[in-house]
Design a protein around this nucleic acid. Structure first.
Length: 273
DNA sequence: TCAAATGTTTGATC
DNA sequence: GGATCAAACATTTG
């Protein structure tokens, strides 16, 4: 479920609580969530203090303080479709589908994931991010990533190896704001359209982050609160409703994902069908 | 009751 | 490369 604004909101929630705290215990109730050897994972991170948190795309990275000369590995958390990270006191009862518990002094962070598509892993040797982040990378870098790309616009926006962070909701919303048909071949867009697309992506992300992301079904932040961006969605989940231009919003399948668009203001030039 | 759909990613296949 | 599909899963919706 969570796309960039939702993950950003979660990282901010964790950043307000965790830095400086020592991870005293990790309880793994469902080992398959941990990528690789779960025991090694637990051993490596237990008794370490959190240094800082970073988001890149839809991934959360937790950096721990190094001990002596021993460099500290990174923890990467990807929430998949339905992953949640909730901050609780240890006394509160466990929700169903709680798979991993990170126990700190005073608080614990619980990884809850109904569909269990999420992954948590240890990264021994962190690498530089090479893919631009849809929110933090300079716009010109994102434009450059899309230029010279071929194929359907929506495909590129969803591809995390091209731009990191957009998912189905924000891809649909960005294309709608930019008046680009989801199947429009990227190579058919002028430089100006590409620049405005990237600008619109940022504008949508900015607004969504400001109000805590989109809660369509499951998403909640670290305090269990829902995000407010659902009310701002122009096409996602609005099949049959009217677009501001007067057209009626349609839902079809593009790149095997449910795709919402307005056939009136997101026209596919007839030469391209 | 059952089939389809759900905010993701990855790997296979053509 | 690019497009398509299936699978990893549980729950909700029509």
């Amino acid at each position: 479920m969570p796309e960039l604004p939702e993950v950003e909101t979660i990282v901010r929630g964790l950043s307000a609580q965790l830095p400086g705290r020592v991870l005293t215990e990790i309880i793994v109730k469902f080992p398959r969530i941990i990528n690789g050897d779960a025991r090694g994972f637990v051993d490596r991170f237990t008794a370490r203090a959190v240094a800082s948190l970073v988001r890149h795309g839809k991934s959360i990275f937790i950096r721990f303080e190094a001990r002596k000369d021993v460099p500290s590995p990174l923890m990467r958390i990807h929430l998949g479709m339905t992953g949640q990270l909730l901050i609780h006191s240890a006394a509160e009862p466990l929700a169903p589908h709680t798979h991993v518990i990170f126990r700190f002094e005073e608080v614990e962070v619980r990884y809850v994931d109904i569909r269990r598509f999420g992954k948590i892993e240890m990264i021994e040797t962190p690498k530089r991010f090479t893919v631009p982040d849809a929110w933090t990378s300079p716009e010109r870098v994102i434009v450059a990533a899309l230029r010279n790309r071929r194929g359907m616009a929506k495909h590129a926006l969803l591809n995390q190896n091209v731009i990191a962070g957009l998912g189905n909701i924000y891809a649909d919303e960005s294309l709608h704001l930019s008046k680009i048909h989801p199947r429009r071949p990227l190579e058919s867009l002028s430089d100006g359209r590409l620049i405005s697309l990237c600008h619109n992506i940022r504008a949508i992300l900015r607004r969504s982050i400001r109000i805590g992301g989109t809660s369509f079904r499951n998403y909640v932040d670290t305090n269990g609160r829902r995000g407010g961006f659902k009310d701002w969605l122009k096409v996602y989940g609005r099949e049959g409703e009217r677009c501001a231009c007067g057209g009626v919003i349609r839902k079809t399948i593009v790149v095997s994902r449910g795709t919402h668009f307005c056939p009136r203001c997101q026209r596919l030039p007839s030469a391209l069908r």
